[in-house]
Amino acid sequence: MKIKIKHQEKVRKAQIQIQEMAFVLVGLFLLFAFAFLGFAAWQTSLMKQQATSLRLEKATVMINSLISMPELACSKQLGYCIDEDKLVLFKSYIDKYELLFKSARINYIAVKRIFPKIEDSVECNSDNYPNCNLHVLYNKQDEDTIIHSSFAVLCHYDMFTGNRCDIAEVLVGIKPET
């Protein structure tokens, strides 16, 4: 009888110990699971930041390439300079570059003179040039388009003052990759 009771006590003790072990293991598992979830969330936000940064970098490079095109760039000046006279002519044969813009996912290109400031936005055409401030070269933007901008010098030849350069903003609309 005594031996039986002792044996039963031993079994109960063992069962309790196994139960304790199971609780400890479950608790540890939950802790590690939460830690892993937190790490995964942090990594995801880091990747999103990097994606945004890369997208902006790509857009800046694209704008600089556009400004440096010989069809638009100033002949004498190096750097971010657009020849406004070339720009006006470029509009007439921009459709030949449609394939290039599509492959680069560009669906909007405009050059806006921002200094000296003109209050109203006046789109340039052959009648009002150079007394205008907005050249829209290409416009096929949709709701997904993200507009990126960069500063550039906008120069044109004035018969009284010679070469005159103003400050402009180059606006490029890019469709993000899905």
């Binding site: 970098e57 800046t60 971010y80 500063f151 550039a152 350069c165 400050i167």
Partner: peptide, 27 residues
């Protein structure tokens, strides 16, 4: 700071320096 951030500041400096003023039509 990243590439795009510095680029904007450098671009703005460049365009300002090459703006044609009314002072003897000089940059």
């Amino acid at each position: 700071p990243t590439y795009e951030q510095y680029q904007k500041a450098n671009d703005l400096l460049f365009v300002m320096m090459h703006y044609t003023t009314d002072c003897k039509n000089k940059e």
